[in-house]
Every structure is written in C-alpha cells, then in structure tokens.
C-alpha cells in the first residue's frame, strides 16, 4: 500500500517538475531574448521551416475541412429548409474553432516533432553542452528563434487555413449545390463579427506559443527525463511525448479559452 502511494506520489511530482521546467524555460528564454544582441535571421529561418514549409499541408487540409463542413452543414440544413445559413455555419465554426485548432495540430505533427527530434539529438550528441562550454547560451541561440517563429507563424498559418476553408465551403455550397452566392457570402458577413476573428487570432497566438514551447522543452531537457538515458530510442520516445503533450495542451486550452471568454 505504502509502496503504491509512493509510486503515485513520484509520478505526480515528476509531472509537476516537468511542467515547472517547461514554463521556467519560457521565462528564461523571454528574459534572454530581451537582452542584446538581437538576431533576426535565425527567426526568419525558423519561420521558413515552421511556417512557409507548412503552407502546402495547411492549404490542402483547410480546403478538405472546408469542403467536408460544407457538405455536412448542407445535409443538415437542407432538412430544415434553411440552406441560407450555410455560410454562417461554416464561417463561424472555421474562424472560431477549427481554424486555430486544426492548424496548431498540423504544426505539431509537421514542425513540432522535428523540433523535438532536432534538439533531442543535439542533447544526446552533447552539442548543447559544447555551446555551454563556449559561453553561448543554448536556450537563447536554439530555442529563442523557434519560440518567436512559432508565435508568429501559427497565427499566419491559421489565417491562411481559415481563408482556404471558407473557400472550400463556398465551393461545395455555391458551386456544387447551388446555394445562392449572396446568401452564402452575406450570411458569413452578418454572422461573423470582429470579436470572433479576434478570438481566433488570440487562440492561434496561444497555441503557437504552447506548441513550440512544449516541443522545445521536451527535446531540450530530454536528459532529465527517464527516456533520456536511452540514446536514439530516447529521442523517439520524447518526440512521441512532445506530440501527445502539445496536442492535449492545444485541445484543453481551446476549451479553457472558449469557456472563459
């Protein structure tokens, strides 16, 4: 009985330590980024990797999701004879919910996993320790640009996703099923307000920060976790953890934001 309790306690303490470490890293990097020298090119390179290279995936998934939503809403609304609400339904669900969440999940899968793997390999091959020896702060040099790039790229990707998804809904509704173009577009304009667009933007900013932070911290601190002692296998297991944790973080914080604001 006591052994079981001790085990449980160790797990809980381990999780708390994990969370604390992650947010400590955020504080550390924020403070370091405020101090000169400021380097912009690394941020651009990370934005290229996290943002620009994800565009194809975002456009394809946005279009698909928009078309699926268009189909689903059309089938439901048709039963009530109110297909005029198609534009309103698609645009509101895309801009408020699906856009930010789907984009963040896509970024986790495409860029987040490789961030963790990259940092994890740098950790086990002692490249990070080498930087420490040369008095280069590895957190500022490696994580700073990634965090900034994530914070900037995810909202931009979300906006592209929203736009493409709205077009997908338009294509299915207006072009395929012949919903009146005016009622689709005006329904969209009448229903969606600035506050909805703003919440979508705020969500994507928070998701961008959370996703890159969790993926960076998992890789950067992999030597402090149990898996970290296992070399290549350890890298694969922290990468999996990073994807799982950041996906859960995105979905749960989405619920929290929606409930609180």
């Amino acid at each position: 009985m006591r052994a079981a309790l001790e085990k449980l306690g160790a797990v809980v303490l381990g999780w708390l330590e994990h969370t604390g470490r992650t947010f400590n890293l955020l504080l550390l990097v924020t403070v370091e980024l405020l101090q000169p020298p400021y380097r912009f090119y690394p941020v651009v390179r990370q934005m290229y990797f996290i943002g620009a290279r994800s565009l194809t995936l975002i456009v394809v998934s946005g279009l698909t999701i928009g078309m699926v939503l268009g189909l689903q809403f059309y089938n439901i609304l048709q039963r009530f004879g109110s297909v005029d609400l198609l534009g309103a339904g698609v645009s509101l669900s895309v801009i408020r919910e699906l856009g930010p969440v789907m984009t963040a999940l896509m970024v986790v899968g495409r860029a987040g996993s490789s961030i963790t793997a990259e940092l994890g390999i740098m950790r086990i091959t002692e490249q990070i320790d080498a930087m420490d020896c040369m008095a280069i702060s590895p957190s500022k040099y490696l994580i700073g640009p990634k965090l900034l790039a994530g914070l900037l790229s995810v909202p931009l990707l979300t906006m592209v996703f929203d736009f493409v998804a709205l077009f997908g809904g338009y294509f299915v509704g207006v072009v395929m099923f012949g919903v009146a173009e005016g009622s689709y577009v005006n329904g969209m304009i009448d229903t969606v307000e600035w506050s909805d667009v703003r919440i979508g933007l705020e969500k994507s900013l928070i998701f961008g920060l959370l996703v890159t932070l969790i993926c960076c911290a998992e890789g950067f601190y992999m030597h402090l976790t149990k898996a970290g002692s296992q070399g290549a296998e350890g890298v694969s297991s922290v990468t999996t953890d990073a994807v799982v944790l950041s996906s859960i973080a995105v979905l749960y914080s989405d619920f929290l934001i929606e409930a609180l604001f």
């Binding site: 934005m47 943002g51 565009l55 931009l156 906006m159 592209v160």
Partner: peptide
C-alpha cells in the same frame, strides 16, 4: 508566406 498570412487576416 508572411504577406499571404497578413492578406488573409
């Protein structure tokens, strides 16, 4: 990419 994002926003 940045211009595209800002334009759609």
């Amino acid at each position: 990419f940045v211009l595209l994002g800002i334009a759609t926003f």
